[in-house]
């Protein structure tokens, strides 16, 4: 029993890592700019598709394709902010909402046209399996967990320890005060969107390597991302990390011990229970 629980936890950590990265991107955009960026999942999958293209069609090694896709993801995020959200920043919230939905459809359509309807799996060649007692850890899952941890740590260091990070936090706390303190509030959204999309691309690559990328996967992932946001607490970085991890492990344990047919249902039931007890989410601030 203990071994099974540990194994399910390991299983859940990998997918939890993906949820964390998606949720971190969403919470950064939502917490700082107040935008529910529904296209985040589809944009993230574009990065996964790009990596697949670079590896399979261009013959690039995976370790070269990943940074290239992350850089492309950053630029794509900057473009999304400039071309899609900036024009409606001072308009009614519904405008940004509609832009987000339209962007989702557009990006899904572009992915479909460029990469077709069939699922693609990013080839990694990482097929070894590590065994520890009765627990098995596939090499790829281990690297996904490690990469997710490294990216989260890097993100935290960036936000907490760098001047740009401090500026981002300042804008999130009080935009007007940040302007008075000399923060360039025009560039902050660009950086936020760039970072958020790069994190999403990392998640897209993980999904493409662990499972597969196909039309519609990004939309499903963004729903989970928002669930994590609510579970962890809106706008909270530690909340997104905790929420993503909890959701991943809960899904895995629920499928293993209750029923695989209710995997998603049980995960959302847990979220509802948490919200009944703590409406602000696990680590959110009470209003």
């Amino acid at each position: 029993m203990l071994i099974e629980i540990l194994q399910q936890t390991i299983n859940g950590l990998a997918i939890g890592g993906v949820y964390v990265l998606i949720a971190l991107g969403l919470t950064t955009v939502f917490g700082i700019l107040g935008i529910a960026h529904f296209a985040h999942g589809s944009v993230s999958m574009s990065g996964g598709y790009l990596t697949y293209f670079l590896v399979t069609a261009q013959g690039l090694p995976l370790l070269a394709a990943i940074p290239a896709a992350l850089a492309a993801g950053f630029l794509l995020g900057v473009l999304v902010e400039m071309l899609a959200y900036r024009p409606v920043r001072h308009a009614n919230h519904i405008n940004a909402f509609i832009v987000a939905l339209g962007l989702t459809m557009m990006v899904e359509g572009i992915n479909l046209q460029l990469f077709g309807h069939e699922q693609v799996v990013i080839p990694t060649g990482l097929n070894r399996v590590f065994r520890l007692g009765g627990i098995t850890v596939p090499e790829l899952r281990l690297y996904v967990i490690i990469a997710a941890i490294l990216l989260v740590v890097a993100m935290m260091i960036f936000v907490e320890r760098t001047k740009t990070g401090q500026a981002i936090r300042a804008v999130a706390e009080n935009r007007d005060a940040a302007i008075l303190m000399g923060v360039n509030v025009k560039t902050i959204p660009l950086i936020v969107f760039g970072m958020s999309t790069a994190l999403g691309v990392a998640a897209g690559i993980m999904v493409g390597a662990l499972f597969a990328i196909a039309p519609g996967i990004g939309e499903g992932l963004v729903v989970k991302g928002f669930a994590v946001l609510i579970l962890g607490g809106l706008g909270s970085f530690p909340g997104a990390i905790l929420g993503g991890t909890v959701l991943g492990i809960t899904e895995s344990i629920a499928a293993g011990f209750i029923s695989s047919g209710y995997k998603d249902v049980i995960a959302f039931v847990v979220m509802i229970i948490v919200l009944l007890i703590r409406p602000q989410g696990l680590l959110g601030r009470a209003p």
Binding site: G256, S260, G261
Partner: peptide, 20 residues
């Protein structure tokens, strides 16, 4: 009798249960 759906790609929870 464990279930997966057409869109499922992570069957490791069900397989872990079966392994047990």
């Amino acid at each position: 009798r464990e279930i997966f759906s057409l869109k499922d790609r992570d069957m490791s929870p069900q397989l872990t249960k079966i392994r047990g």
